[in-house]
Simulated scan of single mutants.
Amino acid sequence: MPEEERNKVMVNQKMFLKQMVEMELEKVNKLEKGNRELEIGMAMNHFIAGKPLNDMQFTDLKEMRRMIEEKLKEFEANIKSWKEELAKMNQLFGAQPVTTVAGENIQNVMQMVPWSMWDVPTKSS
């Protein structure tokens, strides 16, 4: 094999190995990020259970705040989507728009449901 061809093969092998190493590093980074989120999630669960956050560092608290804000955005997006779906259902069934589920508007929700509690089949039926 001529010298020039051997150099090309070496370059190709080096590039291949470099790409493989980069791909594995990406996997490691994703796993580290996932583990970090699990750790912060566990710390949040401990806090919710009443345990203090005294041993957490400032960076951990910042990460916890970021995760909470992300979850809040997800919840807000879900609520918006549900409200839009509810509005579409109201249009289909001709019901009055429901602004809340509590208090006087519960009747509106009940009117939207096409069946009553008594119509639900049970195992004994």
Rank of each mutant, 00 (worst) to 15 (best):
R65P: 09
K71H: 09
V11H: 04
K88C: 12
Q91G: 08
M89R: 09
L61R: 02
I68M: 10
E63L: 12
F58S: 10
M10W: 07
W82R: 11
P2N: 13
M56A: 12
L17R: 13
L72G: 15
H46L: 11
K27Y: 03
E37H: 07
R65Q: 13
H46R: 10
F58N: 13
V28A: 06
N54S: 12
A77L: 04
V21C: 06
P2T: 09
V21N: 08
A87N: 05
M23D: 12
M10F: 09
M15Q: 14
N90C: 13
L17W: 12
R6P: 02
E37F: 03
E85N: 13
A77F: 03
E84L: 15
K80L: 06
W82L: 12
K88G: 05
N7K: 10
E32P: 02
Q57N: 14
M67H: 01
L86F: 01
K62P: 06
M20T: 08
D60A: 02
V9K: 03
M44P: 00
M44G: 01
V11R: 07
E32Q: 08
S81L: 04
M42P: 04
F75L: 14
W82F: 15
E76H: 07
E5G: 13
I40R: 00
I79H: 05
L31W: 12
R66W: 07
E39P: 08
Q19D: 12
I40N: 00
V28G: 02
F47A: 11
P52T: 00
K27F: 02
E26P: 02
R66T: 13
L53K: 02
K8Q: 11
M64P: 00
G50K: 00
M20E: 10
M1V: 10
Q19G: 04
P52R: 00
P52N: 00
R66N: 11
F58P: 07
E22W: 05
T59R: 09
M64K: 01
M1W: 03
P2M: 07
N54E: 09
A87W: 08
R6T: 06
K71G: 09
I40T: 00
E3Y: 08
E76R: 05
P52I: 00
S81D: 13
A87L: 10
E76Y: 03
K80R: 15
N54P: 13
K33N: 09
E85G: 12
N78G: 04
G41A: 00
E85S: 12
L25N: 15
K51D: 05
K27A: 04
S81Y: 06
M15W: 11
P52A: 00
A87K: 11
I68A: 12
H46S: 09
M44H: 02
N90W: 03
L86G: 01
E63K: 14
L86V: 01
W82K: 14
M44N: 02
K18H: 07
K18P: 02
A87Q: 08
L17M: 13
D55E: 10
Q91Y: 15
V28R: 04
K30S: 04
L17A: 10
V28C: 04
N35Q: 11
L17I: 14
K73E: 14
M44I: 06
R6D: 05
N12L: 10
K88Y: 11
